[in-house]
């Protein structure tokens, strides 16, 4: 599915590059495996704001326990030592909690931006960051529409910090620390199962939910999905986020690169040959 498009992009890029370096790297594209993307489903109508997921995340990744108070109307953000945050909102429907973390996009802008593939969409679904590849250019931060990757500005050996869905636990058959710590507001599963589950909840309790699964089509589909009793914009989700995937935006440009490389040099050569022996133009005398 989504991977196909990525691979296509990659192949096009490789084709463009091959024209330069004369090396064929096309064989390197990673496999279209049958493994399904996995993800997380957050249900704001079930979240009680206990912040267990925050502290479980901190413990799992050796960060300090988050200390700051949660205050209605004050938006806490993820940062370089905190990969997920819970926020509280006072709405007509009472107190509602939202949870913010990496969306694990199907077609991640961060990974499309990364020139070293340090940001990487794994075949299991999590988008991970790899220290041995990253050169710290922060282009992933510029590109992520959700402002998720965070940079350690005060370190001589800075890392990019963002949720990796506890990738190391997942490949060993475990589940993310946050989902393990949470009662039932946050569940882990394949993206397909989660969407089915979300649909079921909406249709069984239509009065309890707005009829939308945030992340089903947002930004081209994400691995982290949310349900909410109030409209998502009221919950603090950015209304500007488009439904198309973000890498799509620079695709047109990348596609045109190989053609420019094929067409422009012969054209220039032609013009050069045509003008080679021409006498100084009349312009010279102006």
């Amino acid at each position: 599915m989504a991977l196909d498009r990525r691979n296509f992009l990659k192949t096009i890029g490789v084709a463009g590059f091959t024209l330069l370096a004369g090396r064929n790297l096309a064989s390197k594209t990673s496999g279209n495996s049958e493994i399904e993307f996995q993800g997380l489903l957050f249900d704001a109508s079930r979240c009680i704001g206990c912040r267990s997921c925050e502290s479980a995340c901190a413990q799992a990744h050796n960060f300090p326990e988050p200390q700051d108070e949660m205050v209605a109307g004050v938006l806490r953000k993820t940062n370089e030592t905190q990969r997920c945050v819970i926020n509280i909102r006072n709405t007509e429907a009472g107190e509602v909690f939202s949870r913010n973390a990496c969306m694990h996009c199907n077609e991640p802008a961060c990974a499309a931006a990364c020139l070293t593939q340090a940001m990487f969409k794994t075949k299991e679904g999590p988008v991970i960051w790899r220290a041995d590849k990253c050169m710290g250019c922060r282009y992933c931060m510029v590109s992520c529409p959700f402002d998720i990757p965070k940079f350690e500005y005060h370190s001589a050996n800075p890392k990019i910090q963002k949720c990796d869905m506890c990738y190391d636990r997942i490949i060993e058959g475990g589940i993310p620390a946050c989902a393990e710590a949470c009662g039932d507001a946050l569940i882990f599963g394949t993206r397909r199962q989660l969407i089915a589950e979300a649909r079921k909840r909406i249709s069984e309790n239509p009065e309890k939910y707005v009829d939308q699964i945030y992340g089903e089509s947002t930004a081209g589909g994400t691995g982290y999905l949310s349900l909410s009793p109030i409209p998502f914009t009221e919950l603090g989700y950015d209304a500007k986020i488009q439904n198309k995937s973000y890498p799509e935006l620079s695709k047109g440009f990348l596609y045109s690169v190989p053609s420019v490389f094929v067409l422009l040099p012969p054209l220039l050569l032609g013009i050069y040959e045509a003008n080679k022996n021409s006498q100084p133009k009349e312009e010279e005398n102006e």
């Binding site: 990525r6 992009l9 990659k10 890029g13 490789v14 463009g16 590059f17 330069l20 790297l25 390197k28 990974a111 499309a112 931006a113 990364c114 020139l115 070293t116 593939q117 340090a118 220290a131 041995d132 590849k133 990253c134 050169m135 710290g136 250019c137 922060r138 282009y139 940079f151 350690e152 050996n157 800075p158 890498p247 620079s250 440009f253 990348l254 690169v257």
Partner: peptide, 28 residues
């Protein structure tokens, strides 16, 4: 401006071509 400049060779020498990246193109 690079936080981890020692990895700058990665996109140049080899196994880490992020070919879908505009920055990759620009750097090359």
């Amino acid at each position: 401006d690079l936080g981890r400049p020692w990895n700058v060779v990665n996109p140049i020498i080899g196994n880490n071509f992020g070919t879908s990246s505009v920055l990759f193109l620009v750097a090359w």
